[in-house]
Amino acid sequence: MNQYQKTAGFDLPHIQSDDKLRRVLSSALKSRLGNDPVSPEFMSDRYWDAAHFNLEKVQVFQDSSQQEQGEILRLCSGGLIEEAYFIEKAGVGYMAKMVLLAETTEERMLYALFSSDEVAHLAQISRFLPEKDLVGTEDPFLRFLADLVETQDKTVLLFVLQIVLEGWGLSHYRNLAKDCLNPQLSSLFEGFLQDESRHHGTGVTLFNQMSVSQASRATIIETLALFLQMVRVGPQSVVSAIEQVKGHLSRQQKVSIFEELDTEIHSGTRLNLLRSLMRGEAAGIIVQELEDRGAFQPFPAQKCV
């Protein structure tokens, strides 16, 4: 079995819209979410403008035709929607797993409720996806996430996923909501924040009650070093979208694009946020080890290619 058919469920297929089970699910979701379809006039393939991606600073983008600019923005926007879809899909499996790892009745009840939150988020974000089944992904961050949720070490899960990644996700969703051109989608991301804040806060509470073993600490450090490396290399997806539309880019062209995207500032801001999330007595050694490795230092444009 492919690893993504497990907790993250990235390879799980969708059933047909006329399937009886689909109708039962729709009825259950309606009782939770109400009848809230996406208004056709609000549907789009470009939900964020060039400024959100810093593309107004990129010369090759500015020199492109209106059609090419539109396609680049479509790819960038679509990437954000698909990423949110897979994150929420993984969240359903993760919260279900934490139900089984719960050590008290109340903890089990909380995680069962959290799984329901993730189901609601998944259903809502799916309404903004094209009419296609998203099965599987090669995105490096999502593959990292799929690997992470398979671990059986609860300490690692709480610190890396609920404290660091969910904390980072709060800032990410807040920015998506603020810059989104679509009122319904912006409202949707705003609505996610209260739930995600509760998930993050629970992770902080549970982690602070734990004693962190040397083995768990070592795993946390290695896992976060890998994740921070992805952040350090800058907005790779934006450069990839440009190359898909414009054709092959030379190394020097990519370096120039990363420079115009202010990649060190872009990555540095995110790395500082991630470091600020690693609070508490038990986190001190983790942060120090990552600092010693230079894991919070963004790469210059030349090293992003």
Rank of each mutant, 00 (worst) to 15 (best):
H200M: 04
M1C: 10
M278A: 14
E68R: 07
F53E: 00
S116G: 08
I265Q: 13
G247Y: 11
Q194C: 11
R22A: 15
D45E: 15
P300Q: 05
S216G: 07
Y111H: 12
E264C: 03
A282N: 08
S267Y: 05
Q214N: 13
I257S: 04
A50V: 07
A218G: 08
K57T: 05
P40I: 12
L73G: 00
H172M: 11
G167M: 05
D45F: 12
A96V: 09
S39Y: 14
A51N: 09
Q302V: 15
E82R: 08
Q302T: 13
R127F: 10
F61D: 01
M230E: 09
L271M: 09
E71L: 08
F258D: 01
D179A: 15
Y173F: 14
P130C: 04
G136H: 04
I286C: 01
V231Y: 07
E281Y: 15
D147A: 12
V58C: 03
L274Y: 05
Q229C: 09
Q244K: 14
E71Q: 13
D262C: 10
L181G: 00
V99N: 06
S240L: 13
L165V: 11
E259C: 10
M1F: 13
V233R: 11
Q302H: 12
L170I: 13
E68L: 07
L101G: 08
Q3I: 07
L145G: 01
F53W: 06
P235N: 05
T223M: 06
H266V: 00
S256R: 13
N182M: 10
L161N: 06
S27Y: 15
E190N: 10
P13T: 12
Q297F: 09
R279F: 14
S240A: 15
R108Q: 15
G169C: 03
L110P: 00
F227S: 01
M95E: 12
R108A: 15
K246D: 02
F10H: 03
E196N: 03
D292C: 07
E56T: 13
F10Y: 13
E56R: 09
V156S: 02
Q66R: 11
G234Y: 06
E259G: 06
S197M: 10
I87M: 12
I221P: 00
D147Y: 11
F258A: 01
K303T: 02
T104A: 11
W168M: 05
E166V: 01
L271S: 02
M43H: 11
Y4K: 04
Q209S: 14
E83I: 09
L176E: 02
Y47W: 15
S65K: 05
V233K: 09
M95F: 14
L142I: 04
S116E: 12
L185D: 05
D18K: 04
G294N: 03
A283W: 02
Y94A: 04
V305C: 13
L21F: 14
H199E: 06
R23C: 03
L21H: 12
Q62I: 04
A50T: 07
L193M: 14
Q162N: 14
A241Q: 03
C304N: 08
V239C: 03
L261A: 05
I15D: 12
M95K: 05
N35F: 15
C304V: 04
L29F: 13
R275G: 03
L80I: 06
E56Q: 15
V238T: 13
P130A: 10
L148T: 00
